[in-house]
């Protein structure tokens, strides 16, 4: 089971880039996210531009457990300016967590997670904050939050390659390393977004998003 999940994750690449968790009407989005804590694969469908529903799969590397959940992302509020945009999202999910490690070997629990995220961006600057609380019985009870700042060194038009230099600060009160800094490079063109970086813990972060 674990191997199958890992293969799926590696196939798609690897972390959930949390930017823009809702797409345009009738659009699909596939996302992978990998960092020092977990590998995530996420696929969702947006019936409208204001909410998305989908499947979220995670593998937590150190604690060796998986999450498989249905999730919903809601765009609670968007502020559109002339050359700027700000968003406020609610994200929730419910599913099953499965552990095959230590005292929780072959143990399955109901898992639920929720979090808020907000972002503001222009073509030049980017700011985002998100938090997330995950609970799955005895397997996990975790709160984390991420703050990201970015700047585009040059401005490109639609369809050209957009490059962003970003810094992410991750805070997880229950983690061994509570504060982790990750400089990232974001490459963005059309429906594809890729982020890569190395944290001060020397963990690689690799994120990829594609919209259909």
């Amino acid at each position: 089971m674990q191997n199958i999940f890992l293969i799926i994750v590696l196939f798609v690449c690897c972390t959930v880039v949390q930017a823009r968790p809702v797409s345009y009407p009738q659009a699909w989005t596939a996302t992978t996210f990998n960092d020092g804590d977990r590998h995530v694969f996420n696929a969702h469908y947006s019936p409208t531009a204001f909410y998305a529903i989908g499947y979220n799969a995670e593998y937590w590397r150190d604690d060796k457990f998986q999450i498989h959940a249905l999730h919903m992302n809601n765009l609670l509020k968007r502020w559109n300016g002339e050359g700027s945009q700000a968003n406020f999202y609610l994200r929730t999910g419910i599913g099953a967590a499965y552990s095959d490690e230590g005292e929780f070997d072959d143990h399955t629990e109901l898992v639920a997670f929720t979090g808020l995220s907000t972002d503001w961006e222009t073509r030049r600057y980017f700011l985002s904050y998100q938090n997330r609380y995950v609970e799955a019985g005895n397997i996990i009870d975790n709160f984390s939050q991420r703050f990201k700042i970015g700047i585009a060194p040059y401005l490109a038009e639609y369809g050209s390659l957009h490059t962003w230099l970003m810094l992410e600060v991750r805070h997880a009160p229950e983690a061994d390393d509570q504060l982790v800094l990750t400089p990232l490079v974001r490459l963005f063109s059309g429906p594809n977004l890729l982020e890569a970086g190395v944290s001060d813990d020397r963990d690689v972060q690799f994120n990829f998003v594609h919209r259909f």
Binding site: Y24, R78, Y158
Partner: peptide, 17 residues
């Protein structure tokens, strides 16, 4: 002329719709 167009995801959305 529109408000909120800041990135390629925005442009892709408008194009597709």
């Amino acid at each position: 002329d529109a408000f909120g167009l800041v990135c390629d995801f925005c442009a892709t959305a408008i194009e597709k719709v």
